[in-house]
Amino acid sequence: MKKILVTFCFLILASIATFAQGSGGVEMATELRSSGKIYVVVAVLATIFIGLAFYLFFIDNRLKKIEKLQK
């Protein structure tokens, strides 16, 4: 009897835990954001992109020179 009661309680508690995750508890990276480290990722991505953008400008200028020579 006691065993059944304990299992029953356990099942009820387990189901409460699953309900808790139902609506409000969507997992988001709020912890990561509050510790501020996400800015590091933004900085890295921005650096990569700026680097590539400069590279595109570099190619653009080289082409301009060739086009001038051609004329």
């Binding site: 969507v26 997992e27 988001m28 990276a29 954001r33 996400i38 800015y39 990722v41 933004v42 991505l45 921005a46 992109f49 700026i50």
Partner: peptide, 21 residues
Amino acid sequence: VLFSITGGLLFPVPAKPILNE
């Protein structure tokens, strides 16, 4: 594009199950 990289990673987004961040 730079704005989308910073804003896309930092601005608040709707919290949806499965999708998350």
